[in-house]
Design a binder for these strands. Structure first.
Length: 235
DNA sequence: CGAGTCAATTAGTTTC
DNA sequence: GAAACTAATTGACTCG
């Protein structure tokens, strides 16, 4: 009898079979099984198969998935699933649950549910689990991971948006700098003699600077640059 | 304190 | 075989 068996995920890749962790995840922990040991090749799948057509449709997939199970195997897995849900295994030994792909139908149903609500009440969780013949824990995990994916996707979208905005601002900054340079060039010493204390008004909508009268300058009086006076003023 | 959620991580499976 | 995807685990945190 093996006392130490590989378990997936987490920060330890091996879980001791000493009864620790039993309390926390005993309710539907996939690893808690009555069997003392199941070989990888004939380990029971806890996922059931919704329909025969589904399995046929997925025939091209790996035989290690639940889709390749025989009806008898599927039935076995299904009944075992409900057992685990009810009493949380209570076994002596943990075997790592084989990772199983959800069927298309299961994924679609979960996606639809996720559209309706991104978090689940225990009641909803159990209902979905029952509907899809999954363990509540599997439904819970799926929603958890789905939320994580959503958040990641949103972060990527936000990043792209901010990046674009940053690029736009950089472009705008360069444009304004060029414009300022041009304006400074216009204010060459030859013009200085005749130059009145002209103020430049920058229209916030079209972003163009236009000279204003000194009266305008008095009216708007915002100083934005040397030597010309630039103010924000709508055309 | 227990239940629920999240972030981080692991590891099996699929795709290219 | 590497990369991408995703089911599953773990520990920290929050809240009632």
């Amino acid at each position: 009898m093996e006392l130490t068996l590989p378990v997936g995920g987490g920060r330890c890749s091996f879980l001791r079979c000493t009864g620790e962790n039993v309390g926390r995840e005993s309710e539907d922990h996939p690893s808690l099984q009555l069997e003392l040991k199941l070989s990888w090749s004939n380990e029971l799948d806890v996922n059931s198969v919704p329909s025969k057509s589904d399995r046929n449709g997925e025939a091209g997939r790996s035989s290690s998935t639940n889709h390749a199970l025989t009806d008898a195997e599927a039935e076995k897995g299904s009944s075992k699933c409900s057992e685990d849900d009810k009493e949380g295994g209570g076994g002596v030994t943990k075997t790592r649950q084989k990772k199983l792909r959800l069927s298309k139908e299961q994924s679609c149903y979960l996606e639809d549910s996720f559209e309706e609500h991104t978090t689940l009440s225990p009641k909803q969780k159990n209902a979905i689990a029952k509907q899809l013949n999954l363990r509540p824990r599997q439904v819970e995990v799926w929603f958890q991971n789905r939320r994580a994916r959503t958040k990641l996707k949103q972060t990527e979208v936000d990043y792209e948006r901010l990046k674009q905005r940053c690029e736009n601002l950089t472009t705008e900054n360069q444009r304004l700098r060029r414009e300022l340079q041009e304006l400074r060039a216009l204010r060459a010493p030859t013009h200085r003699a005749n130059a009145s204390p002209t103020a430049l008004c920058v229209c916030p909508s079209c972003e163009k600077a236009t000279p204003t009268t000194s009266d305008d300058g008095k009216r708007f009086g915002g100083y934005l640059g040397f030597p010309m006076r630039l103010k924000r003023q709508f055309c």
